[in-house]
Computed example of a mutant assay.
Amino acid sequence: MTVTTRILATEVAPMGDIEGLHHVGHVVHDMDTATERYRRLGFTVSPPAYPVLPGEGPCGVANAHVYFPRDFVELVAVIDPDRTPAGARPLPLRVPDGKLPGLAAVIRATTDNIASFLRRFQGLHIAIVDTPDIDAVAARLTAAGVPHGGVHAVQRPVETAAGTVMEPARYLEISAPGLPPGRVPEGRVGFAENAPVEDPRGTDHPNGATGLVGCVLCVADREVPEVRERYGAYLGEPREGRANVTLVAASALGDLLPGERPAALPAFAAYTVAVRDITATERLLRDHDVPTARTGAGEVFVPSAAALGAAIVFRQEP
C-alpha cells in the first residue's frame, strides 16, 4: 500500500484559526555543527541563545533560528553547562523567587523531552502551527476530545533593527495518552500565537529562501488511517494551501523523496522552503559541495544524511 495525503492548509479549521506553519524544530546533537551546516546550505542563522536561571549557570536547551518574514526553522540542542555553543548569548531569566521552582521544573521537562528526541534520532521532531486565536484553538481541541496542556505565555528573543527584543508569544502543546505532557508519538506538535514584530532581522538568505512551506510526516502503512484522523482533529479537513503537513506511508517515502528511509516511525522526515530562484539555489548548493537529489515531483532536495537527519526540499515560489 502506498499512501500520500496532504492534511494541513490555510483556513481549514473551524473559525479560521490556522494560518499555516509557525515553525519546525530540528533537534541536533551539537549546535556548532548545526549552525555551520545550515550556513553551508545557504541559510542565515541567528546566534544561538540559552537560558540562565538566577544564581545558576546555563541550563535547558540552546536555540538558533533561521528566520523568514512569517515563520522560521528552529535549531535546538541540549546545553552542556561546561561547553556552550560558540558565539552563544546568555538570556538571563528574570522571575520572582516564588516562581523560580516552577520555571526550573518546566525547563527540566523541556530538556528531558529534547533529550528523548535525540535518543530516537537527530532530525526533525517539532511542528508548530500558526494561529491568530490560540484560545479558539484550545476550545476547539477540547471540544474534539484532543488532550493538550492549555495555553501558556512566554517570551522569545527576536532580532530587530533596534536590537534583540523579547517577543511575547502564547503556545499550546498537544499531548497523547501514555506519553509525557507535550508529547505525541512523532515528537512535539502544537500551536503558537505571536504578537507582530516590526522589521525582524536575518530574513535575507544567500540561498534565496523566503518561507516555510510544509513538512513531511512518515508513518507505518497500517497507521495511516489513525494518523490521518488524528491530524484531522488537530488541523481540520485536507485541503491544499500556503503551508501543509504531508502524511506519507513508510512504503511511499522513497517515491516522494528517493533514497530516504525513515529513522523511526512515526517521524517528521523533511521540510520544504520556498526560494526566489531555484536555479540560483541549486548553484549555491553545488558550489558549497552540498549533495542534492530530486523529489518524485522533480524538486531539488538535500538528503537527510547531508542535513543532520532532516531532508530539506527547496521549492520555486510561485
Rank of each mutant, 00 (worst) to 15 (best):
V129W: 12
A143G: 11
A64V: 05
R294V: 13
V290E: 11
P181N: 00
A297D: 15
E173G: 03
P47I: 11
A263W: 00
G298W: 15
D97G: 14
I126G: 00
I134Y: 07
R70M: 13
L179E: 01
A269V: 08
V290R: 02
A250E: 14
R230P: 12
R276K: 15
V275K: 03
P196F: 09
E193K: 00
R286H: 15
P303K: 00
T279R: 15
G102V: 11
L179T: 02
D32G: 07
V290P: 14
V24G: 10
A34N: 05
Q155G: 03
P180D: 00
Y50E: 00
H125M: 02
L118P: 11
A311K: 01
R170K: 04
V52Q: 06
E74S: 12
F117G: 04
V273M: 10
F191H: 07
V216D: 02
L212Q: 02
L103W: 07
G145Q: 03
D289I: 03
Y50R: 06
E186F: 13
T292N: 09
H22L: 08
H29E: 08
V52E: 03
R140Y: 01
G42S: 08
A127M: 12
T279Y: 14
I7Q: 08
L257Y: 10
V248G: 07
P238D: 03
L8M: 15
A264V: 13
L247P: 12
V24Y: 01
G150I: 13
L93T: 11
V245K: 00
D133S: 05
A139E: 14
V154M: 08
G60N: 00
H22F: 14
G42I: 07
L75I: 13
R239K: 10
G145V: 08
V213G: 02
T272I: 11
A311V: 11
R170G: 06
V106W: 10
A252Q: 12
A13H: 07
A307T: 04
P157K: 02
R6W: 09
D199W: 10
T292M: 14
D204G: 14
L124Y: 01
G187E: 01
R183K: 04
S251W: 11
V189G: 05
V73F: 09
R119M: 02
P47G: 06
P181G: 01
R228K: 10
G254S: 11
F43T: 00
C215R: 00
L235S: 09
V313G: 12
A62Y: 05
G309E: 01
I7P: 07
T292K: 09
T164W: 09
E56G: 03
A34F: 11
E317Y: 11
Y67N: 14
G55K: 04
P180K: 00
R242N: 13
G298L: 15
D135Q: 09
L284T: 02
A310K: 00
R37S: 10
A270E: 04
H29V: 12
I126W: 02
E223Y: 06
P196N: 04
P181A: 03
A136W: 09
C218H: 02
M166Y: 03
V137I: 14
V28H: 07
R40M: 12
A249I: 05
I7T: 04
R276Q: 15
T10Y: 08
P48K: 04
